[in-house]
Computed example of a mutant assay.
Amino acid sequence: MSKEPTFPASDDVTEAVAHGAVEQTAHTEELVAAGLDDDIATVHDLHGAPDEEFDPSEEFDPSEDVEELIDQDATPLQTPVLSDVLVAVEELWPESLAEDWDRVGLVVGRPEAEVDRIMFAVDPTLEVIDEALEWGAQLLITHHPLLMKGVNSVAATSGKGRAVHRLIEGGCALLTVHTNGDSAVGGVSDVLADVLGLTDAQPLMPSAHGLVEEGIGRVGLLPGAEKLGDLAARIFLTLPAVAGGVRVAGDRDALVHKVAVCGGAGDSLFDAVRASDADVYVTADLRHHPASEAREARIDGRPYLIDLSHFASEWLWLPAAAQALATVLADQGFEAELTVSQTNTDPWDFILTPGN
């Protein structure tokens, strides 16, 4: 797959990155004040959001913002080893928040290896791995796991095997932050909710091992009633441009106020969406039968549906995640260069529609 990526350069994304950092700061302070940090994860005080705007269409370098957090007279920051980065990642996205079926954590890498360049991506595809190695990354952090099922071989005769070989031969570790990154405060669905401007957002499915504000999906309120078509258009302009675009089920002029969101595939949450009484559900990978049944469950056809690209819905989280990790590393006395992959890993190349 070799598609020319088109990523958003929207102020909405910049604001979401900043808001995600503020959310994580407030959440950390609440945990420390309540004495709950040892129960969930070791939590450090984060220092807020970057002052300069972030343009996702350009290479992301959170280290430039982190430098502003460091006193000029302070001890120089050190290059972390992989185990140091794993501690920082655990503070932000504890493995305890991952779903039971998920496979998160370190896939490839030596804990004692130095890490001064870290790349974030949605998928650990061969193209992304090549991009990371070309940039000189010692660590690739992806949202999606490379190995979800048990394997008997990682020989370089399969795509998965070639990925493992390229990483090891290139000296690059691989770390997965999946449903723990979905559930955590400032995670995938939080960023999507922030981009839409939702207030009073709460988890659709609270985490079994977290706090009340942690869990899969979010549901919240728009600042005011908005036409379904206008909301869908706003989302379309915010996401990375991919072949599938945005699909909508519902009256274009219908007014919506309460919105449920779930980055990634979300049709397993329809019961929670209905229970939340949301006017519209924004998610990805909606299948025919669950979508049809959801529309027919109520006479008024609600919740309306806005179906996104799986990749695009989760890519929005990457800049916020990279910024958060850079901040925590700096807080611990470490410095690393971070960037976000510019490879479009949406699997579709083009789409045919009526009139096109």
Rank of each mutant, 00 (worst) to 15 (best):
E91H: 08
G215F: 07
G187T: 05
H144M: 09
Q332L: 15
A324S: 15
A260E: 00
V115N: 00
H310W: 12
V108T: 01
I168Q: 08
G197H: 09
K160I: 11
E53D: 15
E95S: 12
D38R: 09
D277P: 04
E127W: 05
L31I: 03
E53N: 11
V13M: 12
W135L: 09
E214D: 04
S183H: 08
L269P: 07
L228I: 02
A232R: 04
H165L: 03
G217F: 06
Q24C: 04
V185K: 04
D251T: 06
H165F: 14
A232K: 01
L126S: 14
A184Y: 07
D200P: 05
A243N: 00
A249K: 04
A320R: 13
G109W: 08
D116W: 10
R298Q: 03
A278C: 06
G35M: 02
P62E: 14
A243G: 00
D300L: 04
E213K: 10
F270I: 04
L198C: 07
P290Q: 06
E58A: 15
V246D: 08
G263D: 12
L192T: 08
T339L: 12
N344M: 09
V154C: 05
L77R: 04
G215N: 03
S189F: 10
A201K: 15
K227W: 03
T283C: 15
P50N: 07
V32F: 10
P56D: 13
G250H: 06
V340S: 15
D300S: 03
L255Q: 12
E90N: 10
V154L: 11
E169N: 09
A137Y: 11
S158L: 03
T157S: 14
A9C: 10
F7Q: 08
D61V: 14
A121L: 11
Q342F: 09
A294P: 04
G159W: 11
G20E: 11
L204F: 05
V66R: 15
I299T: 08
D11V: 14
I40M: 09
G197T: 11
I299R: 08
P290F: 00
Q78P: 01
G224P: 04
L46A: 14
A272S: 10
D37E: 07
D61P: 11
Q342S: 13
L146M: 14
E337S: 15
A88R: 02
A294R: 03
D300F: 02
K149R: 11
L192G: 09
P206T: 07
G210Q: 02
V122T: 10
Q332P: 02
D279Y: 06
G105P: 01
V328K: 12
P290C: 05
G245A: 08
E293S: 06
L316G: 10
H257V: 02
F270W: 06
A260D: 01
Y304C: 00
R247W: 05
I40V: 12
P50S: 10
T176W: 08
L139D: 06
E214I: 00
L140I: 07
L69E: 12
L352P: 01
Q202F: 03
R252Q: 14
V115S: 01
G48K: 12
D251K: 06
D123C: 06
G250R: 02
A265M: 11
